[in-house]
């Protein structure tokens, strides 16, 4: 049908002005269809956002991270949280760091601990739980050889360890801050801060896959300022991962003109031939590499 319209538009456009309106109508209808199916529809009628209680740095990236919520509604969300225990999760390895602790749940959900000792056991539990869940997940998927599998696991473990540390620190910091601001509440810890991805629109807990990839590629990318003469270099690369997290495409949309620079970018990308998580969908990102932060 649409084809017909387009064909006819070319022929009859000038002779019959009404056809223009018909085409317009068709376009609008198509547009609405596209909007509905692409999910952009949500913009017009946003569903009630689920509250997010924490930034979960220990979780692996998700396709549709949820949004953050302004602070200060610590009462209500708690109730919601209890009634709807967990948001829909597609990625298997998620060990939840729970929001405000109800002592009874402590055993099951490592909650924000009040003492250092408790914190340690909690993080340990998470540490143990995660790699286990992860490795089973990835091995059932695609890892090409033992070598990469082992390395992937190793680096994942390391990354998680780091993240755990960071999360613990953050929590400590938040606890300090909240003990300053809210004098009354003992339970006012970091997990009380209802946070999520700033640009999140989905319903999954975790960072967005793009953000995760950005951080990983930044870490992978090594280039000395003494390797390049100019600082105004920039290249754009389209990177594609399949749903199993295997790099399937790496295409320079724009090269920088400096082979050393481009080569360093290639290295950075090839260091992550296999993602540590399953995107669960084809993941395609266009990455711009430049040295803006090194310019003086």
């Amino acid at each position: 049908m649409a084809d017909n319209h387009f064909q006819r538009r070319g022929a009859d456009f000038h002779s019959d002005p009404k056809i223009g309106w018909i085409v317009l109508l068709s376009l609008i209808l198509h547009l609405v269809l596209v909007l509905v199916f692409s999910g952009s529809f949500g913009h017009h009628n946003p569903p009630p956002k689920r509250p997010v209680y924490y930034v979960d740095l220990t979780q692996l990236p998700v396709a549709n991270p949820r949004a953050g919520r302004p602070d200060g509604q610590s009462g209500a969300p708690k109730a919601v949280k209890k009634s709807t225990p967990a948001p829909i999760k597609k990625t298997p390895p998620t060990v939840k760091r729970a929001a405000p602790p109800t002592p009874a749940k402590k055993a099951v959900q490592p909650s924000r601990p009040t003492t250092k000792a408790v914190k340690k056991t909690a993080t340990k539990a998470v540490r143990k739980a995660q790699p286990a869940a992860k490795t089973t997940a990835t091995s059932s998927q695609a890892s090409a050889n033992n070598d990469t599998n082992y390395q992937t696991a190793m680096s994942a473990v390391e990354k998680m360890r780091r993240n755990q540390k960071r999360a613990a620190l953050k929590e400590k910091l938040a606890a300090l801050a909240s003990s300053d601001s809210r004098t009354g509440t003992v339970a006012g810890g970091g997990s009380n801060a209802p946070l999520g991805m700033p640009d999140g629109t989905g319903d999954q807990a975790g960072v967005s896959q793009e953000r995760w990839l950005q951080a990983r590629l930044t870490k992978n990318w090594s280039l000395s300022k003494y390797q390049v003469v100019r600082r105004d270099l920039e290249c754009r690369v389209r990177i594609t991962y399949n749903s199993a997290g295997v790099l399937t495409g790496k295409e320079f949309i724009k090269t920088s003109g400096d082979s050393t620079f481009d080569d360093s970018v290639t290295r950075a990308i090839l260091k992550s031939r296999q993602l540590e998580f399953n995107p669960g969908r084809q993941l395609q990102v266009t990455v711009t590499f430049n040295l803006k932060d090194l310019m003086d």
């Binding site: 990839l213 990318w221 090594s222 280039l223 395609q284 990102v285 990455v287 711009t288």
Partner: peptide
Amino acid sequence: FLLLTAPAAADIEISAPGQQTI
């Protein structure tokens, strides 16, 4: 219409290498 139907690839900018020595 065309813009909306085009597959939207996410855009990321990385403005400095994470490791500034090799």
